[in-house]
């Protein structure tokens, strides 16, 4: 591989000092499973500086608090996937992380990197939408909290400044009745999602109360299926309702055609995945 300049970041203060001095085209390196591929494929134009943040221990932990679960940005998909408490609270997220890449990739690839890379097909992002996650962004000038749906502006594009680090992701610690993540790819392992659906929902007195649905890989960013959610509110999980929800999401989703699939295929599959998710919910309920 080509050689490039790398600075090993020792602490957030170290990062902020460097940022104040100014750097040419800085890129964070967490697990490196996206960034190193880009460098190998000559997609980053030199000169650039790689800031290796992988040694920042303070970004590696998961905290359970009264109101929030806080996940450090360097926590890997493998750690999330296997975490029993996270599985109970956020099954859509743990399902999604379980399917990322391969065991080797999941051992390195971080949730912060998945968000930072901002692919509309990134698996952890649709679940973070349905669970209402927020990102803690920090730089030498200050900090801010941003809702996940306000973070992305297009494929690979976000509102983040180059030296602003995603420190952690916090998710309201709210227990739902059901959560799932379904994805379609060329095969089970090592395939980018052609389309994916995250769903989390609550029930009250037998009817659905609050159902959130997010779709991955259908447009420039992940989208929420708002109309479909509105339709489901207050309804019972019957076969008719499930079928109708499938029709609504097919109309609601405005997918793109690209190398991996056509628009028509994606529309149909949005419906198929939703019907499958709701049917699974009906069966466990």
């Amino acid at each position: 591989m080509r050689r490039f300049s790398v600075i090993r970041i020792r602490s957030l203060e170290h990062l902020f000092d460097l940022a104040e001095k100014g750097m040419t085209n800085p890129y964070f390196l967490a697990g490196g499973t996206d960034l190193l591929i880009k460098i190998k494929d000559d997609l980053l134009i030199p000169p650039f500086t790689v800031l290796d943040i992988s040694g920042l221990q303070e970004l590696r932990s998961i905290h359970f608090e009264q109101d929030y679960v806080r996940i450090g940005s360097l926590v890997t998909h493998g750690e999330i996937e296997k975490h029993p408490e996270l599985r109970l609270l956020f099954p859509s997220l743990t399902d999604a992380c379980h399917g990322v890449g391969s065991p080797q990739i999941r051992n390195r690839a971080t949730i912060g990197g998945n968000i930072g890379n901002a692919s509309p097909a990134a698996d952890s992002i649709p679940p973070l939408y349905v669970y209402g996650a927020e990102l803690h962004l920090v730089n030498s000038k200050g900090e801010r909290w941003v809702k996940i749906e306000d973070f992305f502006t297009g494929p690979g594009k976000t509102i983040r400044n180059p030296v602003e680090i995603i420190k952690e992701i916090r998710i309201p610690a709210e227990k739902r009745d059901y959560g799932t993540y379904l994805r379609l790819g060329q095969r089970k392992a090592l395939a980018i999602s052609k389309i994916s659906l995250a769903l989390a929902g609550k029930k009250k007195n037998g009817s659905m109360e609050d159902v959130k649905i997010a779709l991955g890989a259908v447009g420039p960013t992940v989208i929420m299926a708002v109309e479909t959610s509105l339709y489901l509110r207050g309804k019972e999980l019957s076969s008719e309702v499930i079928k109708e929800a499938g029709n609504i999401i097919e109309k609601e989703a405005e997918p793109i055609t690209d190398l991996r699939s056509s628009k028509e295929y994606r529309k149909k599959m949005c419906s198929t995945l939703l019907v499958k998710a709701l049917t699974n919910w009906k069966q466990v309920a």
Partner: peptide
């Protein structure tokens, strides 16, 4: 891990 995707600084 994939040794091709880990660099010395890590």
């Amino acid at each position: 891990v994939n040794a091709c995707l880990v660099i010395a600084s890590q």
